[in-house]
Design a protein around this nucleic acid. Sequence first.
DNA 1: GGCCACATCCCTCTTTCGAGGGGTTGGCAA
DNA 2: TTGCCAACCCCTCGAAAGAGGGATGTGGCC
Lengths: 210, 210
Amino acid sequence: MKPTSPIRILIADDHFVVRMGLLALVKTEPDMEVIGEASDGTQAVEMYERLQPDLVLMDLRMPRKDGIAATAEIHAKHPQARVLMLTTYDGDTDIHRAISAGARGYVLKQSTGDELIPALRAVAAGEKWIPKEISSRLASRKLFDELTPREVQVLEQLAKGLANKEIADVLKITEYTVKDHLKNILGKLQVADRTEAVTVALQRGIIRLH
Amino acid sequence: MKPTSPIRILIADDHFVVRMGLLALVKTEPDMEVIGEASDGTQAVEMYERLQPDLVLMDLRMPRKDGIAATAEIHAKHPQARVLMLTTYDGDTDIHRAISAGARGYVLKQSTGDELIPALRAVAAGEKWIPKEISSRLASRKLFDELTPREVQVLEQLAKGLANKEIADVLKITEYTVKDHLKNILGKLQVADRTEAVTVALQRGIIRLH
DNA sequence: GGCCACATCCCTCTTTCGAGGGGTTGGCAA
DNA sequence: TTGCCAACCCCTCGAAAGAGGGATGTGGCC
């Protein structure tokens, strides 16, 4: 093995214990080092600019600016940036959005060190890393649902408990149109009513609470 | 300082990186040591029996058996057990249930090492540890809501998108009674309709998805 | 025994939902 | 050009939802 310069890593996660865990994990690999830790998306973007790391370990859910938004921002300025998305959940839409935001890989926090390390190396080397159970689901699900941006907006208002008329006012359209979007949503998500639509959307990561 | 026997700790969390983080954190304290790691509730109970640790760091959400159930089981057999509940969320009901299950402390994963270490020490010493912003909320909220077990059951069916009539069939009561419970739920949660009731219940940890 | 919370059942009435149809526009791609 | 689709608007109609009342039985608590 030729000694090369180590892989310089930026960690972005709002949970202290997770940052510590990643730090400890990276320390077990002699050719990697953590050069910075961010606790939210805004900080992650700022630190990327300043440190220019070889790899970013980015949590998906963070305060102020989430991992998707931060990744998109970094990717826009630095298309060569290598971001590995790290998350607890495996909602389809999250993964989808992470990839289209420019993430090169996607790993669940449940993963053990044996699964994480190869992912780190792969993404740092510029390769893609999507667990196969996830990528196969991505392909099959894509044929169905896929809500339009407008439908997602309606869904968000729905989750607040607003009535159709109220949603109409918020979105500055008529109640007829809201009902129309709702019909499409119920059909695409294959659910019986607005309440189930919201719970399914939450499960799939299409919308978030608060 | 007199050298005493170290605090023996059992970690229970389904996320590898979190376990690593806690491990690293404990290692910074010379008088503490991790004697076991469990990745779900069932394992946590089994390991408690075998290892008899001085302190358990228990994650609230885990597969197979969650932290609450595991704590309750441990507490039933060993009332002197010292369990510190560790979680990402701060839903009121979760905290409530954690305490009544026998947890002595409650800490958010967002907390830094400076906040976590004193919590560990306090609970290991048999004291209680509830962050004040949480305990004050506990006191005030208790005056309001507090759904009855039956109302929670209705709420769970509600989240599935069932109609009142369908819920009536499931719970083997009449639709009138379902509507009745629903009225109480909407009143106690102070929401406008069933959809908002579900989202608020999810936020407060009263019900869970899937 | 009185009080209260819980759970159950019943009825009325207005509003809202959701399913079913009808349509126009603007953009984009084959 | 033709087609497609998102987004918008319109109308009807039966079935739910939710607010308002009232009522009964049970069990705990002081």
